[in-house]
Design a binder for these strands. Sequence first.
RNA 1: GCAGAGGUGGCGGAGCGGUCAAACGCAUCGGACUGUAAAUCCGACUCCUUCGGGAUACACUGGUUCAAAUCCAGUCCUCUGCA
Length: 348
Amino acid sequence: MDLDILKRKLFFMPDATKGAVRYLTTEQLESTGTEAIVTNTLHLLISPGPDTIQQLGGIKKMMNWNGIVFTDSGGFQLFSLLHSKKWEGEIDDNGAVFKSPKQGDIYKLTPETSIDIQMKIGSDVLVALDDCRDTEIEREDAERSVERTLEWAVRCKNHFEKEYGGTQQTDKLLTCVVQGANYLDLREYCAKELVRIGFDGYNFGGYVVNKDGELVEEEMKVVIDNVPEDKIRYAMGVGKPEDIIRGVGLGYNLFDTVLVTRNARHGTVYTSDGILRVKNSEMALDLKPIDSKCSCECCKNYSRAYVHHMLRNGEATALTLLTIHNLTHYQELIEKLNKQKLERISKK
RNA sequence: GCAGAGGUGGCGGAGCGGUCAAACGCAUCGGACUGUAAAUCCGACUCCUUCGGGAUACACUGGUUCAAAUCCAGUCCUCUGCA
């Protein structure tokens, strides 16, 4: 598989956290123009487990998906589930030990096990385990997060190379995550150090919007300015369509966000005319498609009124149709941005 | 006809003398969601308001009380059982 394209083209990757883009069959996923997806190491570790996935022939065979697969390292989950005390567990310099809330089993996630799990899952692009934090934190915490992220990155790279032969032997790519919260000098330091260690990609990590929901552009800029242009530059968790446009403007080329699929399930839909809340009463008699400029299965066949009705009555088909629509909308946006990018390059 | 139970906001249903404009569901009307514990969560939901409050409200009509959705009497209606 030619993964080098990940360094040149723009991609939007929907999140298939547990090995499925919610409400979509793999065929439907393909129909949206999606070429790459992001799955999650920690969630797949808990269920069905890396050994099971391996026995099933890897995530791609399991899903019958021929596109590109990323595995997010689980760093974000340590932040969102353990730091916030939603799950029981401890994070220290060696990694994390935590208890799954449903089965109660104890799991260990270290830089090395994260790589092992990602290998068993069978993804194309691995992400080094990172110590993810909120944007607005004390400097001391941000420093610790950067130090830990760097140490873990080294350990991930070493393990990936010693145990598996690295990119050369595996044909897989290994990316890392830049932390540093909203401290620009820490972001710069973290990026430079990671570049010195050397990875196939540099991902902007942390929380990508501030308290007011504004994209943390300044931080994103410092990072991209200190990262090579010929590598993957992935803005993790970005974002709203306008945020992706900003991210592309800064120089990032990969994006993912749960907004596309989650908002679809919640009845908020992106159109060429802005957002639309399909559940709202004004849709009840609206015979127009969600977006008259869209040619997805939903827009081609059904009215706003029909989807509105299904949504209000708990019909899962509505969630599928709106997910197809939102994802198609995002992929069309990315395609447009890709074309613009190519035109700019050819003019030079 | 007799006996029993009951009538509460759009609906279901708590409350059974003051802390009740009335719990909790549902429905309705808005909004949020950014490396997914999310088909989730948060508001609003009698009317008016200068956002401090104010005015009407728990079938209806009277009454008791400083105070009634809550107690008493009558009226109307509903359900269940027996004739």
